[in-house]
Design a protein around this nucleic acid. Structure first.
Lengths: 164, 164
DNA sequence: TTTAATTAAGTAACTGGTTACGAAAATGTA
DNA sequence: TACATTTTCGTAACCAGTTACTTAATTAAA
């Protein structure tokens, strides 16, 4: 491959993560587009959540997916426009929007699921030669969660300062 | 952590990659901002390239980093505005823009390098308990490079079709 | 030598995420 | 009970990337 970012080792990792993440994202979009499916990447997560839980609010979804709530608002607006999700205001707490899957969504789910299954298979294939990947990736996530890049780097700066 | 995306295993991987990548990106931005450095994530890669090669063109950089060329144009424009990069038109081929680091950039490099070193240390720390990560990540990159998500998933769809 | 094809860079419009801010509703407290 | 605080959602502006398109310059070919 002769990849400059790979040569950079630790320096290039952030960009490589973004590159892979973007590549998967765009490729998924293209897949759905080329197959004429009117869904987008990530929607599967919300479909799954709303199937499992029947009804959820914006905040609940954003907490579950660890997305910011405006991100969820945007996704849900698109899904509403496509007729896959309906909202109604909670009568007990009028701040809350109750989200549910529409009849159309339920009808299309079996088709979507074919694609999600194939996609899951793809991820399994990609990981086939990397048996420790998921486990080690989780460790990194946990570390970042515990103390983020900024904090760690500031710490390293302090500690590496020459002590006159 | 009790992370829905982690529970989803293969389904959630794409989102987790994006989440980690974004987290590193935003954290790096915050770091630079809080420390009053007028640089941004990724610029280090271009600084390194221009240090090594003295002069480069937009296209050369975009090929080396495997970014789209408009992405590089945007980054370079910002770096020009900040006075870190200068451009001049190639006299032999007037389509090309020759990029070089400015005097200001060279002067500030030692300061920047302190931060980049600390950042590299952070990545090393994050990877400390994941000894196979880089190696296995590379394998995934190579696989995606060889046949992307869309192609693989379409293939899986074909193969998994029931054969009546 | 003229014309067609290719290459380099720039611009526009879009994407999926973010933070910051604001309004309305619910909750806690003096 | 009134007022302050918190929560929920929505909107705006931003960010770092993308694709699609355009223009200008170079190169290849008739």
């Amino acid at each position: 491959m002769n990849d400059f970012l790979t040569e950079m080792e630790f320096v290039g990792l952030t960009s490589r993560l973004k590159r892979l993440s973007d590549s998967l994202l765009y490729s998924t979009k293209e897949l759905y587009k080329s197959e004429g499916l009117d869904i987008e990447p990530n929607w599967n997560l919300i479909f799954i959540l709303l199937q499992e839980n029947e009804t959820m609010t914006i905040t609940e979804i954003s907490e579950t997916l660890q997305f910011s709530h405006p991100a969820v608002v945007k996704i849900i607006n698109k899904m509403k426009k496509n007729g896959h999700v309906e909202t109604r205001t909670d009568t007990k707490d009028k701040r809350k929007q109750i989200l549910t899957l529409t009849e159309k969504a339920h009808k299309q789910l079996p088709v979507f699921e074919k694609y999600w299954t194939a996609g899951r298979q793809t991820v399994m294939d990609l990981l086939a030669d990397s048996p420790n990947f998921l486990e080690e990736f989780l460790k990194i996530e946990e570390k970042v969660n515990q103390s983020d890049y900024k904090e760690r780097t500031l710490n390293n700066l302090k500690n590496d300062e020459p002590s006159y």
